[in-house]
């Protein structure tokens, strides 16, 4: 049952995406990319992914958060592990006054700061995938 995992990256910075994608490619993940929130949501709704890597600051502001919120309301997408990759950790406090610096956007997320070291990224991704697998096992 060791089939290739499918990941989706939603991030509007192609250079950054390239730097993330090549790490994941090399680790034998199948990686799709959406360069804007709209395409990203579309891909999430039409394809089956094992995990989402999501940028927060896109377009006119924190559009990544909108995606995370929409996912929370969607019965199917709610279970999808989300790794938030953002360069704005210290600004989270402004976006969510009164909330801790490390807010939980969706139930199954992790947050790492840009840029992210290759091994650290791979560890996070595999840990989230395993946790999702374990949850599924329990539910089934």
């Amino acid at each position: 049952m060791n089939q290739q995992k499918k990941l989706l990256i939603i991030d509007d910075d192609p250079d950054f995406v390239e730097g993330i994608k090549s790490i994941l490619d090399a680790a034998n993940y199948s990686v799709d990319v959406a360069y804007n929130p709209k395409d990203g949501l579309n891909a999430l709704q039409t394809m089956n992914y094992d995990m989402l890597l999501l940028d927060i600051m896109m377009g006119r502001g924190a559009e990544g958060i909108m995606i995370a919120r929409k996912m929370r309301k969607d019965a199917k997408l709610r279970e999808l592990p989300v790794l938030i990759i953002t360069g704005i950790r210290e600004q989270m406090a402004f976006l969510f006054p009164g909330e801790p610096v490390h807010p939980r956007f969706v139930e199954v997320d992790e947050l790492v700061e840009k840029p992210v070291e290759p091994q650290f990224l791979l560890d996070k991704v595999s840990a989230l995938l395993q946790a999702a697998e374990a949850r599924k096992g329990k539910a089934g």
């Binding site: 250079d15 950054f16 790490i23 600051m57 360069g87 704005i88 992210v116 290759p118």
Partner: peptide, 26 residues
């Protein structure tokens, strides 16, 4: 300023560093 600095300066640097990570490994 916070938003501008963060997005306009940090993001490109982040992208550079991200690719440096990969290049160094490769």
């Amino acid at each position: 300023f916070a938003a501008i600095v963060s997005h306009e300066l940090k993001s490109p640097l982040g992208a550079v560093k991200q690719n440096m990570f990969v290049l160094m490994a490769e």
